[in-house]
């Protein structure tokens, strides 16, 4: 039984780590803000879920678990909202997505 729990929490933690690192690579390597935001926000939520579940499996059920579930709930609610607000602000204050620019330019090119 212990072995199964250990294995499960290992798997969860490693999956969380993988997601976190892939998000980090995304935030570092992508060459434009909106793609970076995409990489960060998508991986963030799952990464939190997997890492915290890994911990929950280890701790059993007590007050700490309740707090951890709170953390997951809060981060799941706030993180996407923060990303949404961030991207919205960026768009409204005039930061143009690269894709949009190229499309516009290409349409210009076809016109001319």
């Amino acid at each position: 039984m212990n072995f199964i729990i250990d294995a499960l929490s290992w798997a969860c933690l490693m999956l969380g780590c993988f997601l976190g690192i892939s998000g980090a690579i995304g935030i570092f390597r992508f060459d434009e803000f909106y793609s970076r935001a995409h990489a960060a926000s998508v991986t963030d939520t799952l990464c939190v879920l997997f890492i915290i579940s890994g911990l929950v499996l280890q701790s059993g059920f007590n007050l700490v678990t309740v707090k951890m579930i709170f953390i997951v709930v809060l981060l799941w609610l706030t993180s996407p909202v923060a990303s949404h607000a961030l991207i919205r602000s960026a768009y409204q204050t005039g930061l143009k997505p690269k894709l949009a620019i190229t499309r516009k330019e290409s349409s210009k090119r076809t016109q001319s």
Binding site: L74, L77, T78, V81, H84, A85
Partner: peptide, 15 residues
Amino acid sequence: PRPILQVMAKFMIPF
């Protein structure tokens, strides 16, 4: 109007 933020804030503040 920022409905998403306001709803979220209303949810968070009691917490």
